[in-house]
Amino acid sequence: MSPVRNVTYLSGRASDHSQGIDPKKIDAVHGYALEGVPTCGLTIATQKLIKGDYAGNPDVLLGTIPKPPILAALAKLRAKPAREDRVRKREMLEAM
Rank of each mutant, 00 (worst) to 15 (best):
E91K: 15
I26W: 01
P23D: 12
Y32M: 14
V37Q: 11
I44T: 14
K24Q: 12
I65N: 06
G36A: 06
D59G: 00
P58E: 10
Y32F: 14
K51Q: 15
R86D: 12
A73G: 07
N57M: 07
K89A: 10
K25P: 00
A28Q: 10
I70P: 10
E35P: 00
K80G: 03
G52Q: 08
A75C: 04
G56P: 12
G56R: 03
P68N: 06
P58A: 08
T39R: 14
N57W: 07
K25C: 00
P69K: 10
A79H: 04
A28N: 05
V37R: 09
P81I: 07
E35N: 10
T39S: 06
G63A: 07
G31C: 09
G31D: 13
K89R: 14
V60D: 10
T64I: 00
R88T: 12
G63D: 09
E91V: 08
G56W: 07
E84Y: 02
D27Q: 11
Q47N: 11
P68C: 12
V60L: 11
P81M: 00
L77I: 01
I26D: 02
A28E: 10
I70D: 01
G20K: 09
D22A: 09
N57F: 08
T43Q: 12
G52T: 08
I50F: 08
R86A: 15
D53W: 02
M92G: 04
R86C: 01
K80W: 03
L61W: 00
H30G: 00
A73W: 01
G52N: 05
C40V: 15
A79L: 04
C40S: 14
D59V: 04
A45W: 03
V29C: 08
V29G: 08
H30T: 00
E84Q: 13
L34R: 09
G52M: 07
L62K: 13
A75E: 01
I44D: 05
P38C: 01
Q47D: 10
C40M: 06
T43H: 04
K80H: 09
R90A: 13
G63T: 10
R90M: 07
G52Y: 04
D85C: 01
I26L: 05
L77D: 11
P69E: 07
T64C: 11
I21S: 05
I21L: 13
G56M: 04
L62Y: 02
D85S: 11
I21E: 03
G52A: 08
I65W: 12
R83N: 10
L49M: 10
R78P: 01
D27R: 12
K25D: 01
P23G: 05
K48L: 03
L49P: 01
K25I: 01
T64Q: 14
A75T: 06
G41F: 07
L34F: 02
L34G: 02
K80N: 13
L93C: 03
A79N: 05
D53F: 01
I26R: 13
K89C: 00
G20N: 05
H30Q: 11
A28G: 06
K67G: 02
V60C: 12
V87Y: 05
D22F: 01
T46N: 03
K48F: 00
D85E: 15
P23Q: 09
